[in-house]
């Protein structure tokens, strides 16, 4: 039985190998290694490197047939013998980086393309050298420290390259960024514009950002999918999280606008919310867990409702827990609501 399951898994994997990316199209890979071992120099095919302007230095069909005089097909050579994503990578590099092959060919890297294009022999996946490769020769430490990325990058925000190591946006970055971005705010701003933070943390954000990306259900978002149905449950599981972005009166303003609870006709609270016995006093426990939720409706003048019972000598008793302290003077709000004239 176990054997049959393993065989079924292997068959399924084989059948789905293309979809999963396990099977790479053999003809898509350009045999760089074979050319090098035959003694073909890089610039023989990639001509014009010394003047690094204009289009990419990809060989055209004429260059190929100068050696391969009997082509097996009439279609353009690179249509099959180059992976499309590798060419797209080169186009992106040309669009977004300030780079001149010509300067490099006359410097320390003269005649040694592999010094930067280390991965070429292994395939076309790493045509663009990693940033660390640049730093092997170029001492850009000061630029990096000052976040002067435009030394090499034309516009990081438009480039859309994600960090490869530190601050890698993997896993659950939406949750993780709170702990990580705290100490790297200036680094974040090298790619992200002001509105990127304000889309969520801005008090005046008009709509959840996901609504403006309705064609992209896979984009990460705090309030994705059916959040309005879940939000009460999620807020209870993580008290205080909502106030990271939302103002105190957000709950009541939204509920009133949508005509959900919070109106004068009916109470949004369940039975047993307020009572004289502890079994009928759910409100105290809930208020301690998430006071911001209470403050949304009962803030400001609404606080009078609370202190009508929770005052010195009142039936609600002392609202402070044991050992509670504050630096607020008794004459200030909210202390003076219960402690008139500074009375203890």
């Amino acid at each position: 039985m176990t054997r049959a399951i393993w065989i079924a898994i292997l068959v399924a994997l084989a059948a789905c190998a293309g979809v999963l990316g396990l099977k790479r199209g053999g003809s898509d890979l350009f045999p760089h290694r074979a050319h090098v071992t035959k003694g073909v120099s890089c610039t023989r095919c990639h001509a014009g490197m010394e003047k690094d302007t204009g289009p990419l230095h990809l060989p055209d069909d004429a260059t190929c047939v100068s050696c391969h005089d009997k082509p097996h097909d009439t279609r353009p050579c690179l249509g099959c013998h180059a992976p499309k994503d590798a060419i797209a990578q080169l186009v992106e590099s040309r669009d977004h980086l300030k780079f001149d092959h010509g300067k490099h060919l006359t410097g320390a890297a003269t005649g040694n393309c592999m010094r930067c294009h280390k991965g070429v022999a292994e395939g076309d996946a790493a045509m663009r050298p990693a940033m660390a490769t640049c730093f092997n020769c170029h001492a850009h430490g000061e630029s990096r420290d000052a976040r002067r990325c435009e030394t090499c990058h034309k516009n990081l925000a438009e480039e859309g390259t994600l960090p490869a190591s530190h601050l890698a946006h993997d896993g659950n970055w939406m949750r993780e960024h709170g702990a990580r971005a705290a100490s790297s705010g200036d680094l974040c701003s090298t790619c992200h514009k002001e509105s990127f933070c304000a889309d969520c943390h801005g008090v005046t954000a008009p709509v959840i950002p996901a609504k403006l990306r309705l064609m992209d259900p896979l984009a990460s978002s705090v309030h994705r999918a059916n959040f309005s149905a879940r939000h009460a449950l999620e807020a209870r599981a993580q008290p205080g999280l909502c106030t990271t972005c939302h103002q105190q009166d957000r709950c009541v303003s939204c509920h009133l606008a949508r005509g959900v609870a919070g109106d004068t006709a009916g109470s949004p609270h369940p039975r047993g919310w307020v009572g004289l016995t502890s079994s009928e006093n759910l409100h105290g426990r809930e208020a301690r867990r998430d006071p911001a939720a209470c403050a949304s409706c009962h803030g400001g003048a609404g606080e009078q409702l609370c202190v009508s019972c929770h005052k010195v000598g009142g039936v609600g008793g002392n609202p402070h827990p044991a050992g509670w302290s504050s630096r607020q003077p008794l004459s200030s709000l909210p202390c003076r609501m219960c402690h008139p004239n500074g009375a203890r």
Partner: peptide
């Protein structure tokens, strides 16, 4: 792999001018 932990005290996140800042510290 990522390991994470957090603690949040809502009573310290509401404004100190709010009555709801005085009802104790129940962290999540």
């Amino acid at each position: 792999a990522e390991a994470y932990a957090s603690q949040r005290s809502p009573s310290h996140l509401v404004p100190a001018t709010s009555l709801f800042s005085v009802i104790g510290d129940v962290p999540a």
